[in-house]
Design a protein around this nucleic acid. Structure first.
Lengths: 236, 236
DNA sequence: CAAAGTAACTTGTATATACAAATTTATATA
DNA sequence: TATATAAATTTGTATATACAAGTTACTTTG
């Protein structure tokens, strides 16, 4: 069940993306929209708030809402999306190679990252992402086996998030992410087509379920020339 | 005039930051809070929504709200904040050196970035940021002079955003940001202490006012080992 | 005692209403 | 005509209410 305001949000996003609502165009007033969609103004306002947060519109008190062009062509890499979801927007240019999948006793480093008790095991999933036939991203995932049981080769080759959300029925909720630049390791050199680059852009993520349990630590290691992070930010 | 829900938000942020509300603690229910603060539940919900978006709490339907530890120690570099605001949280470790300030006929590149008409001029502001006495960040700002008149040396040495918001009374609203890694230029090498590093992390921003006018294009160029981007992301 | 069912509690959505604040439009005035 | 004033429009905040949906705690039942 999606709520009314989410449906309205989705409809307006479509109108913006397919060009029916062009950049700099003015949306109908909240009262007009509430009449159009046969809901109250508060419901419209929830939809518009979402649009504003995601960079689709700008609201100005006393004037109205204006369509922005910011998020029309670019898709933001910020947020919490799986590689499969990103790849879907890139067309047929990506492939994934599963390098390693195993249930392990974690290293001290991983134990610390995942705040594990003694004797808890983790799935180690190492995958190389090819874009236009170049190996440019190395994803190293570590998953708490207590929370995420039954990871298979098939799952790792397709999408772990799809497995967690659809098969296990869990709700992935939020993540803390950090972007840094580090020296490439031997593993990076061995698994990626580094072409002389000696540094690597590292995106480290701690990912949490809805009940605030930490289930995943990930390092996504990118060849510097292929790395691009796009974000929309509002000033508070 | 700050609204009630913003005041309540700020109060609860303080309670979390000073440790009165610890990580994993449960907040009072929305009904209890509405009684405590003598406002309606909807007003409490607006405050909690903000807390949730900023990573301070996790809301779970049927259960309640839980305090997260995510945003307690780290301050996110995401969002839209000036260097002066960032520096305030780093203590007395930063200094700014103004390298260049001038009103210019923009290059074709800047003209394109700022979507300028013929004959419009821009302020070029080039500043080096020192952290612990090392020159590690090169900020190159370009401001539309039609929108932002009267930039002085004093302003550039202190804070352009402070000038825009407090002196000019304009409202900085949103930005589109992009992070990439590029080869260091001669200018980077001349102005920064690169210590052998040959690449530079570049944060490019297009910044807009409340009325959606584009007033600034910025390149913030970081020595790779000193660059760190931290973000809190929710899955939608 | 264990399991099922019920009630109570908590968050999520939606409606309705009122007034404040900012902008735009229309009107009146000099 | 130009300017000041007032009215209408539009978004922002706040209150009040009702019910849905998920969780927890309790009671009943076998």
């Amino acid at each position: 069940m999606t709520s009314k305001y989410e449906k309205i949000y989705n409809e307006i996003v479509l109108l913006i993306q397919n060009g029916t609502l062009r950049a700099n165009a003015k949306l109908p007033s909240e009262n007009d929209l509430s009449e159009q969609y046969q809901v109250t103004r508060e419901t419209i306002r929830k939809a518009l708030k979402l649009l504003s947060e995601h960079g689709y519109i700008q609201k100005i008190q006393g004037k109205g809402s204006i369509v922005l062009d910011v998020n029309k062509y670019e898709f933001p890499i910020s947020g919490l999306v799986s590689f499969k979801e990103l790849a879907a927007k890139m067309g047929q240019r990506t492939r994934t190679e599963l390098v390693k999948l195993g249930l392990q006793v974690p290293s001290d480093f991983i134990k610390k990252q995942l705040k594990l008790e003694q004797s808890e095991k983790v799935w180690e999933v190492i995958r190389v992402r090819k874009i236009d036939d170049e190996k440019v991203i190395l994803d190293k995932d570590y998953l708490n086996e207590n929370l995420i049981p039954g990871v298979t080769v098939k799952v790792a080759q397709n999408s772990i998030y799809e497995f967690i959300e659809l098969e296990l029925g869990l709700v992935i909720s939020f993540a803390k992410k950090e972007i840094t630049v580090e020296e490439a390791t031997m593993e990076d050199r061995n698994l990626l087509d580094l072409e002389g680059y000696s540094s690597i852009v590292v995106v480290k993520s701690h990912v949490y379920l809805e009940d605030t349990s930490l289930f995943q630590y990930t390092e996504s290691r990118h060849r510097p020339d292929k790395f691009r992070f796009v974000d929309f930010a509002r000033r508070h």
